[in-house]
């Protein structure tokens, strides 16, 4: 086995471009990608992947033929997975009338066994729509990106203290003024709680924290 130009395995195309292997040159997928304003760079030694996209993802295309013809696409998928590229590896699978009976087996293999991401398409036209969406959508903000929320913890602590039976907002605030954390509150003796919330509530709060919950230990 020869390893050729390994750097190409991690080649990230510039914005608005797609890198693809020569064999796609005349395909309808490439034609409609061009029609959609995506610029194409052809590359002979791309490795297993069919496309490299600017957002550091790559695509392996599994066609209807591949699926119906049988097992060689599986070997390709495994090789694809084992290429240690820094890309997010996507697999486009043609799910057509002819191939749909195999789809769930393909999905099991791709998602459960290999842990790759599968996106079904009905054919090359849909694939090109999806690819150009990935290419053009790159600069835009992703609404699903998790914002690291730096919420204030104070209201959450207050809410938790109100989960103690018999403690409403007023008592919770009063308690937290004396015992500023849940840890302190939990370890306060009933006598320490008494001046703040009265004897009955003090007992109740203390026993709530220390009454056994687990059956076993």
């Amino acid at each position: 086995m020869e390893i050729k130009a390994p750097s190409l395995l991690n080649a990230v195309p510039p914005y608005g471009h797609v890198i693809t292997s020569e064999k796609w040159r005349t395909s309808s997928l490439i034609q409609s990608l061009k029609g959609g304003g995506v610029k194409i760079l052809f590359e002979k030694e791309l490795g297993v992947a069919d496309f490299h996209l600017p957002n550091r993802s790559c695509i392996l295309y599994v066609s209807e033929c591949d699926i119906i013809a049988g097992n060689s696409y599986k070997r390709k998928l495994v090789r694809y997975r084992n290429t240690s590229s820094s890309f997010q590896e996507l697999v486009l699978v043609e799910n057509t009338r002819l191939s749909e009976q195999y789809f769930s087996a393909v999905q099991k293999f791709v998602v459960f066994d290999l842990g790759l991401t599968l996106l079904p398409v009905s054919g090359q036209t849909e694939a090109s729509q999806l690819i150009s969406q990935i290419v053009h959508g790159e600069g835009r903000e992703n609404p699903f990106r998790r914002r690291s929320s730096s919420r204030l913890l104070d209201p959450q602590v207050l809410a938790l203290v109100q989960r103690v039976p018999g403690v409403g907002r007023v008592k919770a605030l009063a308690l937290l003024q004396h015992f500023s954390s849940i840890h302190q509150l939990c370890n306060a003796a009933p006598q320490e709680l008494e001046p703040i919330v009265g004897q009955a509530a003090a007992q109740q709060i203390h026993s709530f924290f220390h009454k056994p919950t687990a059956a076993g230990t």
Binding site: V111, L119, L130, Q133, G137, N142, R145, R146
Partner: peptide, 16 residues
Amino acid sequence: DSTLTALVHTGVRLLW
């Protein structure tokens, strides 16, 4: 398509 792309990019696993 853009919803799918966004989901995949945030690490959500899709099953069909």
